[in-house]
């Protein structure tokens, strides 16, 4: 990176000061606190506590329920990521192809991006309502008694469905812009070489979209793990019960509902390590992407 620069002693410090001070107070300090309190068992009021070393972590790994929640989080993340990517891609390919109404379709397929996850959760609650929710009735028509909040798998299905709905638009937007940035010459050449449109897609278009897809993969995993909090909290109506939940929701349940600061902090640290691994992976991919282009 060669760039003509100003050299001024105090100016950059001044410019960076707001950002860096906010980051120190509201990022590094809390992150450090999370690490620290994961080694303690503390009275929520702050009167007493015991240093317990790694006990909070061992407790988690020995807890069958924590492993079960991890497994659900995995299934949830895979399903949400896969289906929202697939639907986003499908709609993007079609919207790129049609001539009539292209911009209308584009608008209609992307606006849900602006819907807040808990709002999506409320829509989900009403569609999957016990007894007379529309989708509940649809299931009843096919002979399955769908009961959200009772049946673990039904509840899991509803959470996944709503989370997918919320995530399709962003994938659609990225895929569509990826498709539209494919140079015309390549498209035309492909048209001539390959008559079958599905083969053309898999041999030419899809590889060109791969960098976008990689980027979206990480974005979607992050979404499924963290940003679905609102969907889950609203759809479970703050009653964990025997319902499925994600690891992020569990951090909240133990820390805020249960007052178990140490256990909740240990879970936070585990999530931090997970995200860290994911981001390093992402940075390496981006680096390679730069080599590609």
């Amino acid at each position: 990176m060669k760039r003509a620069s100003f050299s001024n002693l105090w100016m950059p410090v001044l410019l960076l000061l707001p950002q860096v001070s906010i980051i120190f107070v509201f990022f590094y300090w809390p992150a450090f606190e999370a690490l620290k309190s994961s080694f303690y068992l503390q009275d929520p009021f702050g009167f007493s506590g015991t240093f317990v070393g790694l006990d909070n972590y061992f407790t988690l790994f020995q807890n069958a329920e924590y492993l079960r929640i991890s497994l659900f989080t995995l299934v949830f993340t895979v399903c949400v990521t896969f289906f929202s990517l697939a639907l986003g891609l499908l709609f993007a390919v079609k919207a790129d192809k049609v001539i009539r109404g292209a911009s209308t379709y584009k608008t209609l397929l992307m606006w849900v991006y602006a819907v807040a996850p808990p709002v999506a959760g409320i829509l989900g609650v009403s569609l999957f309502y016990q007894g007379h929710g529309l989708i509940t009735q649809l299931f009843a028509f096919f002979g399955h008694e769908f009961v959200i909040g009772v049946n673990y798998y039904d509840t899991g299905f509803a959470l996944i469905a709503v989370s997918i709905w919320k995530q399709v638009p962003i994938n659609f937007i990225f895929f569509l812009s990826g498709l539209q940035s494919v140079p015309r010459s390549i498209r035309e050449a492909a048209m001539i070489d390959n008559r079958s449109s599905s083969r053309r897609f898999w041999t030419i278009t899809f590889p060109l979209l791969a960098p976008t897809a990689f980027f979206l993969l990480i974005t979607n995993i992050t979404y499924a793990m963290f940003d679905t909090f609102g969907v889950i909290d609203v759809m479970l109506r703050s009653e964990p019960g025997n319902n499925p939940m994600t690891l992020t929701y569990k951090v909240y349940v133990d820390g805020f509902r249960g007052g178990d600061l140490g256990g909740s902090s240990a879970q936070s640290v585990i999530l931090m390590i997970l995200v860290l691994a994911l981001t390093i992976f992402q940075f390496r991919l981006i680096e390679r992407r730069i080599h590609y282009t």
Partner: peptide, 26 residues
């Protein structure tokens, strides 16, 4: 300069959700 760059960009790694409890305390 490099140090500030890394101080700032490390924050991309951790969404608020994973440090929610201590953030709240702070």
């Amino acid at each position: 300069a490099t140090l500030s760059f890394w101080i700032i960009f490390t924050t991309l790694l951790l969404p608020l959700e994973v440090r929610i409890l201590p953030s709240y305390e702070v």
